[in-house]
């Protein structure tokens, strides 16, 4: 066995752990169930977090069939570079798109979701009608404990005056977003019987992603949540407009912070 390093773990132990990590992430890939009515930006959200290239369509529903999608998600660990690290997405056509198929999709979700480490339920900020979400939530009661609710497209909240310069919602939008979050949280709570984690975000603007991601890591099983951090592909600084990053970093006292390897 090699001599212990200054960090206190010898090289052989470290090699063994790296091998076990590879075994864990290959043998049982990190799995995210993504649910939401059609057009809520499920694929865009996953792409923004993990840069995995899920197909996105802005016109018609993109996911036509119920899918278990395995996407290459290389770890930032160079020792795992040769491993086929995978993020598994349990993805389905948006619920509510065709009422004739909903029962079929719901039953497929019931079959597939037990394998999901965490379930991301997406909604949009501008859609006030959440009866369909409530109805589907009732059907998926066994999975409520690992659900995180994301309210996407907050950049489109009235009066639609998102600040492009700061990449942030305007003051009026922020007030409206707070009202929307509270409203959706109450309506979800009425179904699941506990206060839900509801996070407003914009996948397009990479805004609110860190809060959403943290909520997902906290909802994942304790022994598995580290894997999601290992394959994450964004940095808390990403939503800051490039020309402002140095100034903002200085103002938050993070100038010396090592940016994540994959960060732009």
């Amino acid at each position: 066995m090699d001599e212990p390093r200054d960090v206190g773990i010898d090289a052989e132990t470290e090699r063994q752990i790296a091998a076990k990590i590879a075994e864990e992430v290959v043998g049982r890939p990190p799995t995210v169930g993504v649910i939401g009515v059609s057009g809520t930006g499920k694929s865009s959200t996953i792409n923004a977090m993990f840069k995995v290239g899920l197909e996105v369509s802005h016109v018609v529903a993109c996911t036509k069939e119920f899918l278990n999608v395995d996407l290459a998600a290389p770890s930032s660990d160079p020792r795992l570079a040769g491993q086929q690290t995978v993020l598994r997405i349990v993805d389905a056509p948006g619920l509510g798109e065709d009422v004739r198929r909903d029962p079929e999709y719901l039953s497929m979700y019931e079959e597939a979701l037990p394998a999901a480490d965490v379930i991301l339920w997406t909604m949009t900020a501008r859609n006030r009608a959440v009866a369909l979400d409530q109805q589907y939530l009732r059907h998926l009661a066994p999975f409520h404990d690992r659900m995180v609710f994301g309210i996407n497209q907050i950049d489109l909240v009235e009066p639609r005056d998102w600040s492009e310069a700061a990449n942030c919602p305007s003051r009026t939008q922020r007030q409206n977003i707070d009202i929307i979050v509270q409203d959706r949280a109450e309506r979800i709570e009425s179904i699941i019987g506990r206060k839900p984690v509801v996070v407003p975000y914009s996948a397009t603007h990479l805004y609110g992603l860190q809060e959403l991601f943290t909520a997902m890591v906290e909802a994942a099983p304790p022994r598995r949540s580290w894997i999601f951090s290992a394959i994450k592909k964004f940095d808390p600084f990403d939503f800051i407009p490039a020309q402002l990053r140095d100034r903002v970093a200085q103002d938050v006292g993070e100038t010396g912070r090592r940016r994540m390897r994959w960060s732009r």
């Binding site: 860190q210 943290t214 890591v217 906290e218 304790p222 022994r223 951090s229 290992a230 938050v252 993070e254």
Partner: peptide
């Protein structure tokens, strides 16, 4: 967001 990042990091490390 950096606070959320730290929370994520702590949770992931504990896990």
């Amino acid at each position: 967001d950096l606070e959320y990042y730290r929370r994520e990091d702590i949770r992931a490390f504990d896990a």
